[in-house]
């Protein structure tokens, strides 16, 4: 009897935090469909949506329908997908490595994927091949990092993994620089640079469906093992003393998070800071329990990237690369978070 009474405020806080993040996302999705170079009013949006769903005709200009359903909605959904994916991967890496600085960049996923894409552009391969290469190289980078950490034994496994990630990431960065140096400065170099800066400009529906499927496949193990992640965040020895098979769990979590990251990066290019920043905010809202942290991070990540993408396409005459904006917003935010409390994850 007393336990139920006492546990209620925390559970209600968790539930309300989750609902707040869902409502926030819904609001930003609606807003994002309206704003842009061709602005749509709320009334027009409702009329066109209703007529689109019910099939009844409307008397508004036909261009509005094209703007909403052909241009804006795919991009909005892409931002939602990529934001949620990067935040989910970031939350996973942070809990797993017990490191608030862990993010999709840590295992060299982003750098590896960037190298794959740059190489594909350098070889003048088609768009589909660029995404495939990004994905393959992203996974390859993680396997390399994980392989190195397996070979170098007898040290703190987490530390070795993180350092190996730095080394592989730097190596991939050097290879990218080499490709940029060798690339055709009028055609390939701008393409490589733009891709590395990250953008949702060129997303199409079929690419997005492939990414959605891969992100979905990655989310399944994260969801099924969501409580086990709490054990992993205690550290390897304590988790094993509590009966967890940490080696197998670690591989499962890394594979899932990397698949999610590589899938996102393959359509959006390299977008930093989301996977680092959003899980922090989510943890401040709902605490470290991965069962609440994962969904909250995903909703917040989707909202955040969508809002930043709205900025990217409306702030100036030309479109500002998304990766630059997330860095401009992310860096000061993170510094503020650090200064607010010495250990922000605490």
């Amino acid at each position: 009897m007393p336990s139920i009474v006492k546990s209620n405020p925390r559970r209600m806080r968790l539930r309300s935090s989750l609902w707040i993040s869902i409502v926030l996302l819904a609001g930003i999705i609606l807003f994002s469909c309206l704003i842009g170079r061709y602005s749509v009013s709320f009334r027009e949006f409702v009329i066109i949506s209703v007529s689109h769903i019910s099939g009844t005709p409307h008397d508004l200009p036909i261009v509005l329908e094209t703007v909403i359903f052909k241009i804006r909605l795919p991009r909005v959904l892409a931002a939602v997908l990529v934001g949620a994916a990067l935040a989910a991967a970031g939350a996973t890496y942070q809990s797993l490595f017990r490191n608030p600085l862990a993010s999709p960049d840590i295992l060299g996923v982003s750098a590896g994927a960037g190298l794959g894409a740059a190489l594909a552009i350098f070889l003048s391969l088609p768009v589909g091949a660029i995404q495939l290469m990004a994905f393959v190289f992203g996974l390859g980078a993680v396997f390399a990092v994980y392989g190195v950490s397996r070979i170098v034994r007898g040290h703190d496994p987490i530390l070795v993994l993180v350092l190996a990630g730095v080394v592989i990431g730097t190596l991939a960065g050097s290879c990218i620089s080499l490709l940029k140096y060798l690339a055709d400065p009028y055609d390939q170099l701008p393409a490589i640079t733009f891709w590395l800066l990250g953008s949702l400009n060129a997303v199409n529906t079929s690419d997005m469906l492939v990414t959605l499927a891969m992100v979905g496949v990655g989310i399944i193990p994260l969801h099924l093992l969501r409580w086990r992640m709490n054990l992993m965040s205690l550290g390897d020895e304590e988790a094993r003393a509590l009966g967890a098979n940490t080696d197998a769990l670690r591989v499962a979590f890394i594979m899932a998070a990397t698949l999610i990251t590589a899938a996102a990066v393959s359509i959006s290019g390299v977008i930093g800071w989301v996977g680092l920043m959003i899980p922090h905010v989510a943890r401040l809202m709902v605490g470290p329990d991965f069962r609440a942290l994962l969904p909250t991070s995903m909703f917040l990540g989707a909202s955040y990237l969508l809002a930043v993408d709205d900025l990217a396409r409306t702030i100036a005459e030309i479109e500002v690369p998304l990766g630059i904006l997330t860095a401009f917003l992310g860096a000061p935010f993170f510094l503020w978070l650090l200064s607010r409390s010495g250990r922000t994850w605490n």
Binding site: L225, S233, G235, L242, D289
Partner: peptide, 22 residues
């Protein structure tokens, strides 16, 4: 490392009695 509640920490002790996905 992470600010779990005391109850959450103690409940982790139930881990060896729970199935992998539970």
């Amino acid at each position: 490392y992470f600010p779990f509640t005391v109850l959450e920490v103690v409940m982790m002790g139930r881990s060896p009695h729970l199935g992998l996905f539970k």
